[in-house]
Design a protein around this nucleic acid. Sequence first.
DNA 1: GCGAACGTTCGAACCGGTTCGAAGCATAGC
DNA 2: GCTATGCTTCGAACCGGTTCGAACGTTCGC
Lengths: 341, 341
Amino acid sequence: MATIGDVARAAGVARSTASYALSGRRSVSDEVRERVRRAARELGYTPNAGARTLATSQTMVIALLARFLPDEFAPAMLQYIQGVSDSALEAGYDILLSSDPYGPAALKRITDSRMADGVVLLNVAEQDDRLPVLRSAPQPGALVGLPGDCTGVDVFDLDFEEAGRAMVEHLDALGHRELILVSQPEHVIERGGAYVWRLQNAALETAAARGVTLHAAYGSSSQPDIGRELHALLEAHPGATGLLLNNEAAAAALPTVMHERALSAPADLSVVGRYSDEFARSFSLPFSSIDAAPHRLGRMAVRQLVRRIEHQPTADGPHVVRLITPELLDRGSTAPPPDRQ
Amino acid sequence: MATIGDVARAAGVARSTASYALSGRRSVSDEVRERVRRAARELGYTPNAGARTLATSQTMVIALLARFLPDEFAPAMLQYIQGVSDSALEAGYDILLSSDPYGPAALKRITDSRMADGVVLLNVAEQDDRLPVLRSAPQPGALVGLPGDCTGVDVFDLDFEEAGRAMVEHLDALGHRELILVSQPEHVIERGGAYVWRLQNAALETAAARGVTLHAAYGSSSQPDIGRELHALLEAHPGATGLLLNNEAAAAALPTVMHERALSAPADLSVVGRYSDEFARSFSLPFSSIDAAPHRLGRMAVRQLVRRIEHQPTADGPHVVRLITPELLDRGSTAPPPDRQ
DNA sequence: GCGAACGTTCGAACCGGTTCGAAGCATAGC
DNA sequence: GCTATGCTTCGAACCGGTTCGAACGTTCGC
């Protein structure tokens, strides 16, 4: 492979001159610049990434720390990755993907060895063991997911409390008086998935304030268990006319369950979910839902990260916690409750 | 950050001695080794990746070239990535993820700038524009997906022809005489998804050889279109008693369609699919299916790649094309056809 | 007692870029 | 005519590792 030395020799100039001619960081005569460029083109010169990094301490790489959790939903996960990937490409960065199943060791190695200019953490838990490592790293970090302590990093997440409120308010406004909320399984909360109770608590509070009955339940994240559980819940609360889903598996199982119970939405039951739009499209979930917007969140995280890396004035300020406002996509699965005498 | 110079100074030795003490590539007295190790530990020394790469021309990085195609199925894609990620971690490699939507430019840049020791290509098409670039790159490459020309790379894929044969044979053996095969949409073939017609042709040939009628159709990859198309197909071929699915969207839509038509498997219709096991688990698709094994394929590709990178004797030989034999997972959705008089 | 052999350590060179300071040279100004 | 100025280019140093050859001191064998 051609080095800049080869290019310089071919163009008959010093290495430094070749470097300046290509980077434009100092002025070079038109004639020399042209000679260097042609030599570079003819030799197929591409700068060696390691050498450049060593000289500039810039890697043009963003580390993406994902966590493949057993009951994390694949479509959402991939959308986060795509969001990060797309916007990194736009900004001229490559992505170092680490799945980090054994705690923060991989993150520490990556930051210490200077393999990346910045770090994006996905699937951030309430108490995330990667956060202390990230805070003491020299690179800036951006999170997708809201941890208990946000100091020193930029944070992006869906506003799950507002989501809980919006779901209840929507059904209350239609006249529903008894609702069921199916959340993720409890072990998701235990490993730090605070968004589950954030949505749930906000929903419970809103329901209480409005005099609406809300039965909150945890559901499995796997099939076919969740199907059985949905049956049991509908059985146990025959007066419920609205169903809120904060559990993708439940959303996937519900159409079949409703078929089996001869229920249809919204005639018999109003349904509102919370999952990614992409997920809804792939599986034809005919339920109105709040878009979890994983692609957008990944994108926001990278953009902010790049701003910080490149020390743009807007980003030198205090760290940001940005919770995006949930939007309810109406797919026609909610309506006023059926009359019951 | 501490450099090896800092470590050497703290231990009172030369930089080279510190390097040898830590790497073990030359013998060093026990006492000095201990001093160097302690100094490294106390200073929190981690070698600078760029510098090491420059010196050794080893990056310990594998490039993963994925392609996020609009109708590629997210669960399968993520499983490929996980398979690659898991086995790279085991082998001590990090992963550089590139999504490369604009053709092979990103691949060329990555290989030319020596950012990786080897390359894994996902979603390889029959005529893949990344292949010429990969062949002329100095790094070895492993593919997931079978291209027209396999020279110079190691190739891993499911044996789709055998899958087509196995599906037809299975239903023929049960006594079915008329089958429907739903493939991916035609534009998937046009962009190089040769596996679609490989499975389809093998199925057609096998059916013809056995005197079985097989209606082959392309289906949409999006909801709710595919649901309508399934209805139409079942309408058009009332005599068909077996359904073969080489289309994930069709598999996702089928339970609802069958409910709507008051059909059940296997009593009214025997169904065999082809998708990843993970996909089947997440959505509780109650159909017997051939496991697409994305995790396993990603794993195989990385292992072979690592063998080649590290010049192990087994890998210096000729390039490998390994098509894994499909296994039909019986979930009880096939049985002899219902009697019709 | 002397040279050979060995184990240990050091210094220097190298990987391939970037960047700083200075030198060379032509032109302008006085 | 001589110095000041500006433009262009060069050489050297540096980033932080690894690795080669040589120097050093000890021990061994004869």
